[in-house]
Design a protein around this nucleic acid. Sequence first.
DNA 1: TCCATGTTTCATGTAATAATGAAATGATGG
DNA 2: CCATCATTTCATTATTACATGAAACATGGA
Lengths: 110, 110
Amino acid sequence: MEKTDALDSLSALAHDLRLDTFRLLVRAGPEGMAAGEIAEALQIRANTLSNNLTILAAAGLVRSAREGRSIRYFARMEQMRDLLGFLIQDCCGGRPEQCQPMLDQLSCPC
Amino acid sequence: MEKTDALDSLSALAHDLRLDTFRLLVRAGPEGMAAGEIAEALQIRANTLSNNLTILAAAGLVRSAREGRSIRYFARMEQMRDLLGFLIQDCCGGRPEQCQPMLDQLSCPC
DNA sequence: TCCATGTTTCATGTAATAATGAAATGATGG
DNA sequence: CCATCATTTCATTATTACATGAAACATGGA
């Protein structure tokens, strides 16, 4: 991942509503959620959500697909993985002795 | 890590100069770098850097220590680890089957 | 075809963010 | 204790991000 893509993703996630939206979609999994369902769940206006979904989509963190009248949104886990990869690579830059101990402490809560 | 802390860290990193600064400090390792050295390396004004170092410090991503006339800055890897942990936990929320494959693809470049 | 539903686009006002020059602070060596 | 160096603080200005109401667009059903 390029630095500019990482900046886009970080900016997209560095926003209360967008972080909530992304987390919600991650939890929704492969079925995704319709824009209306998201707005309902997060108690926000349709157009505010739409603007922020556009920003998440531009950053590659979500994708959309029309389904009848509504439009479903899905979290793009690949992008999330690439972002984590970028941040980790960032930390390692030539200094494995600093990076590895950090990663060892990182455990997946699964 | 709390969501509000994660948002602070994400906001702090979602800025070209601050991301560069943080990466530089990570690479500098435990010796850290004086503010003047950072400004020199990144070719930016002292006060611009100072403002952005303050933001990084408020987010917990760097710490500082005076050393003679200059002030040294250090990357706080714990905070970075916690942020990564938050983002990963975020992705797992109740859905290990989605999270684990992602993590398996994540390898440390060390 | 016409209407209702779901979502996005547009225009606008406002608030937050960012960089800058100038001045102030703090620390050191002479 | 003075001069100097390193860094921060302050005030100002420009830019950008944000939420909103109103209007537009697309789809499916009567």
